[in-house]
Every structure is written in structure tokens, then in C-alpha cells.
Design a protein around this nucleic acid. Sequence first.
DNA 1: TTGTAAGCGTTATCAC
DNA 2: GTGATAACGCTTACAA
Lengths: 353, 353
Amino acid sequence: MADLARELGVSMTTISRALSDHHSIGPAMKQKVLKLAKKYNYQPNRLASALRKGKSQLLGIVVPYIEGRFFPSVVHGIETAASRAGYNVIICQSNEDVAQERRNLDILLSAQVAGILVSLSRTTHDFRHFEKVRSRGLPLVFFDRIVEGDNVNAVVLDDQEGGYVSTRHLLNQGCRRIAHLAGPQHLNIYKNRRQGYLDALREAGLPEDESLILYSDMAQDQGAEGMRQLLALPSAPDAVFAAGDYCALGALQEAHRQGLRVPEDVAIAGFSNETFTVITQPPITTIDQRCEEMGQAAVRLLLEIIEADGRPFTPRQVALRPELLVRGSSDRLPAVPAGPLRDPSAKFIGTLA
Amino acid sequence: MADLARELGVSMTTISRALSDHHSIGPAMKQKVLKLAKKYNYQPNRLASALRKGKSQLLGIVVPYIEGRFFPSVVHGIETAASRAGYNVIICQSNEDVAQERRNLDILLSAQVAGILVSLSRTTHDFRHFEKVRSRGLPLVFFDRIVEGDNVNAVVLDDQEGGYVSTRHLLNQGCRRIAHLAGPQHLNIYKNRRQGYLDALREAGLPEDESLILYSDMAQDQGAEGMRQLLALPSAPDAVFAAGDYCALGALQEAHRQGLRVPEDVAIAGFSNETFTVITQPPITTIDQRCEEMGQAAVRLLLEIIEADGRPFTPRQVALRPELLVRGSSDRLPAVPAGPLRDPSAKFIGTLA
DNA sequence: TTGTAAGCGTTATCAC
DNA sequence: GTGATAACGCTTACAA
């Protein structure tokens, strides 16, 4: 910058203003500066700028890990939304370890990020380290694995809605005995999916039948085992809603082993839209978790807080509407003319309980 | 820092030295400073430090996107290795767009990163924007999608070796007519996998039979179609080496449709270790691309260059040894006692051609 | 519209 | 072993 100033015989102030498009700068001057900057291949130093302004163009992400289908997609969404807004992203993994999570927060604080996005590690039960962030006035948004409560900013998938629409769909296909392969009920996601399932049944006037609900850890072979048990019932179900795709896959494979046709004899639906659900035969109906939208929604919320710039901001919890993907494993009706397109943008459903 | 200095009645210099563990500092003083820093919850400002030192603790990553199985795993490996070495990582996506890739490089330059890791966008055919990086003396390492040549630092998977070990394995299983579902030969990865396949055949004294090599874009249905064609041959193959897992899956499904047993009637092997290969029945033998090791190897190389600190560094190309994962789709022999464990560390095989 | 000068938080240099 | 001071590159009152 000093070079440019010297060469043009103006002050660095003018250079700075021209480069950052300040209002009180002559268009002529601006052009000259920009041209010379290009010629000299001038690279602004964001460190210096951030240091002076006390605000960087960096957002921090803390995730348990960058593997599998979910987190990479969310990070993808975050990076995309952030860079669109002129921010870049520092990414940290906690490896499901609170201590590491704490360290990551410290690092992000000292990197002077403008805001932080966090999905909690599985071992985080004490949330005091987030107080440090809050006390520094640093915008903070949780996603997916969140701190519960209405005094935090958070974005999650509406799992109950997911269980509900999935079960409704099976009902619409004419199924009347719908079993549920449920996950560990101490985890909110599985509890909510089950609740949505029950909601749909009740709404349809069907009885809640505990013999049709089987609990497991949702692994592939547990899905197979579940299906085996269900098919051995005096009156076997005509549909299975599994709270996870691996479990649904096991169920599908077991059904085939027993010579049943899917979806004619038994319809199957899973949850999560794992990559493999489209390559099975038939492909598996499932619920998309809108990973990317979750990332984008989290960034939107974070930017709102950043832009509030210290002014009081009422914490908000956003629940994303899950998307039902109807595929061969549950599609038993003749094709119907398509309805209006679903609005693909992330939805605010309401404040969480 | 100023506060600490005042409270202890010493200069900021002393504080700085105590905090950064400078040699000329009294252990007593050091303890006092550290204690007080803890009490006041002192957070170093890495921006200021980096500005002053002219070097940040940040590495930049540019990838086409963070989706699928490959890139997230590599990023995982990069972040893990980087944070172990005290670095953090800024991640940028090029979305397979050169222009964006160029912009990303500019951003990373202006963020004063200590080094850059790049996997090229598919639309990058002109490499001039990397000159800017080089001319600034900034350490640069390519991975997976690299600039060819021996004047760049690069880490790749040895695809030819992958094709070779895969085919060798099928030979060891007693197969003698081994077909190959090949990918587009203008892409190096597919060309190399095919070459490895041919190498193994030649080594075994088997003829190269072009009627057993089918070319496609490697999609699932193309794998099925390929298998159909192969099975219609006057003398059908007893094994298929597919250059991709989706293609292998299609082949597997088609074999089942035609009532063949896998691996008894026809053995199948894929490439990439996609997640779904373990959930099929039988699970699919494949080649692991060592994504995580690739990330780690790239960081190791980058750190070496960083530590050379401007001193001449001879560019190096590293080829990682792929790992054969033998699974049900090709395992036709009785189990053999396990040999010595394979060294799991990333391997330097040699300079690329 | 432009310039002057101070300062963001740290560290390297040089002197003591 | 410790301190004073300048400097890293940029922005922004305040003044002109």
C-alpha cells in the first residue's frame, strides 16, 4: 500500500479508501488506484485489517468429525453459505472429546473468528466452556447436536415431523399394520421419530400396538432380526418404518430372504437418506435430513447475530422440515400427477419445546 | 498483556517471553506470569502474532467440494495431521470451477496462510494462478487431482498398483478368465488401473484379451450392462475386475439376476471402498484409496516445505500404496493363516513417471 | 475529497 | 534476565 501511495503521490489513507470502496473517494482516483493495485499485484493483508478492525472474516466450525454422510454435507452447506457472504471457514474436529472441543474453542477465540458454529461432541455434558465464548460476546450457533434450552441459538432437523410424514405416507399407501424399528429412546432423535410415528397412527385412528415396536441400536443385522420377529407374529405387519437406513436395509434383505415382495407384501421406509438407499433393489424410501440446508440455516442465523453487532438478540431455535423421499420400497400405488413443487428452502417450523 | 505487565510491574516484553516460553526468562517469573494469565483468562491474539511474525498457523485447503466419500476423508486426515502439528485449517471449495479456484487462492494468500493444499477443479487446464502462489514463496502441495510434472509437490494414490494387486488377488483365487470393466481412458486413474490389470495378467502369463475389457463411465447400470455382455460371451469370464465400486455393484446385481453365484461362478472386485461395499450380499472386494493417509501425507510434505523456510526444496511426488480389501465377492478359497501385518503407514513408492 | 497520526496486540532488536 | 522501542499492514477519528 505504501508503494502505491508513493507512486501516485497520495496518502495511504486514500489508497485504503479506494481499495475498500469508501464513499468519500473520487471515481477517478479510485480507478487509478485499482489499476495500479492490479499492476503491482497487490494482495491485501486480511490479518492486518482484522487486527485493526477487531473483526475477522472467519467463521469457526467445531464438529465431532468430518466423516460419514452427515457432517461433510453440513460443512459443505456452511462453507457455501459463508463464502457467499464473504466469510471463510476454519474447521476443527473434536473427535467426540470434550477436552478437544474446549481446546478448539480456545483456538477459535484466539484466531479472532467472527462467530462459531458447533455440533457437540458425544462426551460433552458440561457446557461451561461455551460461557467463555458467550462472555466474549462472540456469536454462537449450535446445530444438530445442540445444547437444549431457549437461551441458545440452534438449528436441528424436526425428527418428529420426519416420523410423522413417513408413517402418513405408509398409511396413504394403504398399509394398516405399520411396525416401527425404533432406536435407543434416551436419544432425542429416536424418541422424536417414534413420537411422530405414534402421532400419525393416532391421527388415522389406529391403535398403538407395542408389539409392533421393536427397539435396537439400529444396525443392519438388527434390522434383519427385527424383520424376522415381525414376520413371525401371528398377524404380520404390512409395513415397517425403521428409524434408520441401515436398519431398514437389514429388514429389506431379510424380507427378500423370506421370499416376500417389497413393497407389495411389506412396504419399508428408512431414515437419513444414506447414499446406499438409492442403489438397493428396490431403492429404499427414506427421510432426507437436509444436511446442506442445515448448514446454510446455521450460517444465516449466525450472520444475523453478527450483524446485530452486540445489540440484544433473542436466541432462536430453528427446526428444519425433513423431506420424504418416496422410492420403490414403499411405492405401491399407481403414479399420481405431481402436486405443486415443495419449496426447497429451509423452513422455520417453530420454537422447540 | 498490558494488564498483566502492569499488575506484575514488569514490561510487556517479559510477559511475551514468559508466555511464549522464551529461553531468557526466569522460571520464577514465568510461573507468576502464567498463573496471572490463567486468572485473567488471557487469550492470545493470533492475528497480532501472525501479523508481527509474518507467518500464521493456518493452512489453506482448496478442494472441488466436500461431498461423497473421498474428499471429506482426505480433509479429515488433513485436519487431524495439521492440528497435531499446531496448525489450523481454512477450507475452500472450488465447485469444480477454475474461477472460484483462483479466487480461493487469492483469499488464502491474503489470509496469510503458511501453506496451501490443493486438489484441482475439473475445469482447471491453465495453471498460471499457481504461479502467484509460488512467486510469493508459499509452500504448495497438490493431492489426488494434481498438476503433472516433477517440479510440483504432489501426493496421489498408485492406481496402477491398485489394478495390479486386485487382479493378482483374483488370479490367486484360481480365476483364469478375468474381465475388466474399465473407465474412460483419458482419465489417468482409469488408464492406470487398466495398466495394473494388464501387468498382472502378463506376469501370470495370460494373454491380453480385448474382448474381456469393456469401457464405460462406470455407473451402476453400466456395470450391469457390462456383466450382461460378458456372460453372453462364448466363453464367459470367471472373474470381473471393475475400476469402480458402483460398476462392480451393477455387475454383482446382474450376476444374481442371472442366477449365478458370487464368488463361486464369478468373482467380482471393485475399486474405491465406497461405503456400500460392506453392506451388499456378499460384500464387495475392493481397493481402499487411503483417503485419510493421503491427507496426512500431504500435510507432512507441506510441513517439510514450510520448515525448509525458503531454503531450496526439491519438489517431490508421493504415491500411496493402495490397500486391497478382500471380501465375500471374491473370496473363494478356504481361510489361510494370516501373514505378517501390513505396515499401515503411508508409503513412498517412488517418483512418478 | 484528502491527509495526519494513532493504534490494533504482538514480537524482534538492541541496549542494559 | 529484563526493558524500551519500533514495527508488522491496515483503518479511522479528526483535521484540513
